[in-house]
C-alpha cells in the first residue's frame, strides 16, 4: 500500500512536469505545424540561466528562476524571427532544422557550462511526511504543484482571453484568422516565445532536483514528443492527460516492473498510440 501511494504521488508530480514541458511543443506544433526538436535545449538553458543567477550571481532562488524564464522568452522571440519563421511552412525541413539546432545548442551548453551537472539553489528545503505513510522531498512536491498551477493558468489564458482566442484561431485556420484581422505573424512570434518560456519554466523547476547537464535536453524532448502524440497536437487537455499518463505509467513501471527500463515505457506508449490512432488521442493530423 505504501509503495502504491508513493508511486502514485511520484507519478503525478512527474506527470505534471511532463505535461508542462510538453505544452510548449504542442502549442508551437498547433500554431505553426512545426515540431520543435530543440525544445529540450530551451529547457536546459532555462535551468542553466537559473543556475547562473542563483549561484554565480547569488540571487534569491525565485528571482533567479523568474529572470531565467524571462530571458528565455526574449530569446524565443529572436530565434523565431531568425530561424523558424522562414521554414515553418515546410514540415520536414523544420524537423531537420530544429534537430540540428538542438545539437548546436547542446554543444554550446557543453562549451559554456562544461560537462558537470549544475544545480541551482533549492527553492525549498526539507522533507514532507505524507499522511504518516512515507516521506517525500518537499521540493519535488512543490515543483509538481507549481506545474499544475501553470498548466491551469495556461488553460485559462487560451480559453478565456483574447490572446488565447487569437492563438486558437490561427491554429485552426491561419488564412481565415488573417482575414478577420488577426496578425498571424505576431501570434506566431509570441506563441513560439511563450513555448520557449514554458520549456524554461519546467527546466527551472526541475533543475534543483536533478542538476542539469548539456545532454539532459534530449530526454525532455523525447518525453514531450510522447505526450504530444498521446495528447494530440494543439490540445492542452491532451497534454495534461498525456503527461499524467506518461508520468504514472513510467513510475509504476519502475516500481513494479523494472527500474532499468524506465525510459522505454514512453516510447512503447508512443508507438502503440500512433499505430492505433495515427492522429493521436485528441488531436488532428499534423
Amino acid at each position: 500500500m505504501n509503495l502504491f501511494l508513493f508511486t502514485l504521488l511520484s507519478g503525478l508530480v512527474s506527470g505534471a512536469l511532463y505535461a508542462l514541458s510538453a505544452l510548449g511543443v504542442s502549442l508551437v506544433a498547433g500554431l505553426m505545424r512545426v515540431v520543435n526538436f530543440s525544445h529540450g535545449e530551451f529547457y536546459i538553458f532555462g535551468a542553466y540561466l537559473s543556475y547562473v543567477f542563483g549561484i554565480v550571481f547569488g540571487l534569491q532562488p525565485w528571482i533567479a528562476m523568474s529572470i531565467a524564464v524571462l530571458i528565455m522568452f526574449l530569446c524565443g522571440l529572436i530565434l523565431q524571427w531568425i530561424l523558424i519563421r522562414p521554414i515553418y511552412k515546410n514540415q520536414s525541413n523544420a524537423l531537420v532544422t530544429t534537430f540540428i539546432l538542438s545539437i548546436v545548442l547542446q554543444n554550446i551548453a557543453m562549451i559554456v557550462f562544461g560537462p558537470n551537472p549544475k544545480k541551482p539553489p533549492n527553492y525549498i528545503d526539507g522533507v514532507v511526511r505524507i499522511f504518516g505513510f512515507f516521506e517525500f522531498g518537499a521540493q519535488r512536491l512543490m515543483a509538481g504543484a507549481i506545474a499544475f498551477v501553470i498548466l491551469a493558468c495556461v488553460l485559462l489564458l487560451v480559453w478565456k482571453t483574447n490572446f488565447g482566442r487569437a492563438i486558437r484561431a490561427v491554429a485552426q485556420d491561419r488564412d481565415m484568422a488573417e482575414a478577420i484581422g488577426i496578425n498571424a505573424g505576431w501570434v506566431n512570434s509570441v506563441g513560439f516565445a511563450f513555448s520557449v518560456a514554458l520549456a524554461a519554466a519546467a527546466g527551472v523547476l526541475v533543475a534543483p532536483i536533478f542538476p542539469v547537464t548539456p545532454n539532459a535536453g534530449e530526454s525532455v524532448t523525447l518525453a514531450a514528443f510522447v505526450v504530444l502524440v498521446f495528447g494530440g497536437v494543439g490540445s492542452i487537455r491532451g497534454c495534461l492527460w498525456g503527461g499524467l499518463i506518461l508520468g504514472l505509467v513510467e513510475k509504476f513501471g519502475i516500481s513494479y516492473l523494472s527500474s532499468m527500463y524506465s525510459q522505454i515505457f514512453g516510447f512503447v506508449l508512443l508507438v502503440a498510440v500512433l499505430l492505433m490512432r495515427p492522429t493521436g488521442m485528441y488531436g488532428s493530423k499534423v
Partner: peptide
C-alpha cells in the same frame, strides 16, 4: 540492488 549508471532518480529503489 542494481541501478542504471546514468540514473538520476533513485526514489523508487530507496523507498524499497
Amino acid at each position: 540492488v542494481s541501478v542504471d549508471h546514468e540514473a538520476k532518480d533513485f526514489y523508487a529503489e530507496l523507498n524499497k
